[in-house]
Design a protein around this nucleic acid. Structure first.
Lengths: 198, 198
DNA sequence: GTAGCTACATACAGGTCTGTACCGCGTCAA
DNA sequence: TTGACGCGGTACAGACCTGTATGTAGCTAC
């Protein structure tokens, strides 16, 4: 009957935690992490400040949880697309660049959360930077698998090139003409894949 | 005998202003703009706070001046390299990717200042964002000139692809192996240039 | 000399930030 | 019924932030 959660399972379960994280994620992403104080998060979420600190200990932990959430959302989307092209690595890569290009081209797109937070917190020991670094390495790892399926001469190099291309798209939305990103990315990937076979 | 400067030329000229801007630039770049207060800039520069506010009205103006300085430094380097390959566009592009790759691979590299500041200040009306946007457009413009000299079928598209590649390199230092960036960039550019001629 | 400018030094106003303390309320389990 | 716990609400501590006010010293030009 109940949610059968483990630790904070009285009342309605972890609804308060989810509400805080959801609100914080939107605010952090649209306004920047340092620009958003916990008081604003608490107010917009309609919860008590004590609840925020009970669930997340520190603001830094909340930031890390925000990046974790974005990370999971990103790979969920990735997996959905990958499943539809399980037999054709070339089509899978194209499909990824398609949705990434569309996402980058949206009007309210504000860049990759991982990159943005890494830019806001240059200190290497910040908990959020670990999440960001793991995210970027995971991207290259997945692209390497695709590169291997494409029989690239050097899968790791092609994966690196595609990683740079995708990361570049994340931070280049300002220079794209409307609707330009997808075609530009796919043609660039075409060229990189073709060259990787020589 | 004197420096013959124009407006603030009493005492030692604009030395104080330069000292402030130089100190602020290093602090802003290594620690992040929002993480550095004007008190710290003043202390490290060894000047009075009133001097900072006399030369730069607001902290936002100081940030914009910081990005302007970085912008000028970047294009100065660019022009130096371009001069050495005035007759050969292919060699010029290669040389640019060479020094950019080396810069990205340095141990204390913390990304492109323009991208970092844009990530720290998502509001579109911030004075520093105008500088950052102009910087990115200027890069694409210069790359388009190179693409035209390379007789690309669509110079603007090739310039866009190369822009994405370079911007990607700026934010991907975490995923590069030591010394990997230059070769990866140059081979990727090879592939893009080759494909642009078909 | 004297006025005008720049610079240094210090203090402070007014606001914001993170994180904690304390209180009362409602709900669940025993 | 009673105790434990999550939750909302408020107040607050302590630190930090930007920007200004005030006063003093030194240099230049008239």
């Amino acid at each position: 009957m109940s949610k059968s959660a483990t630790s904070p399972s009285v009342h309605g379960g972890a609804e308060v935690r989810d509400k805080i994280l959801e609100t914080a994620s939107e605010l952090f992403y649209t306004r920047g992490v340092r620009a958003v104080g916990v008081d604003l998060v608490v107010e917009k979420a309609g919860v008590a400040k004590t609840s925020l600190y009970r669930h997340f200990g520190t603001k830094d932990d909340l930031i890390a949880a925000f990046l974790d959430r974005e990370d999971q959302e990103f790979w969920t989307k990735w997996d959905q697309v990958a499943e539809q092209h399980a037999e054709d690595a070339r089509a899978e890569l194209d499909a990824h660049l398609q949705w990434i290009g569309e996402r980058v081209g949206r009007a309210n797109y504000r860049g990759c959360p991982q990159i943005n937070v890494a830019a806001e917190f240059p200190e290497g020991d910040h908990p959020a930077r670990k999440v960001a670094q793991a995210h970027k390495r995971e991207m290259r790892r997945r692209l390497k698998v695709i590169a291997e399926r494409l029989h690239a001469a050097s899968p790791d190099q092609l994966a690196g090139q595609l990683s740079v291309l995708i990361n570049g798209a994340f931070v280049s939305s300002q220079i794209f003409e409307p609707g330009e990103a997808t075609a530009l990315l796919r043609r660039a990937a075409d060229a990189l894949v073709a060259a990787s076979r020589s």
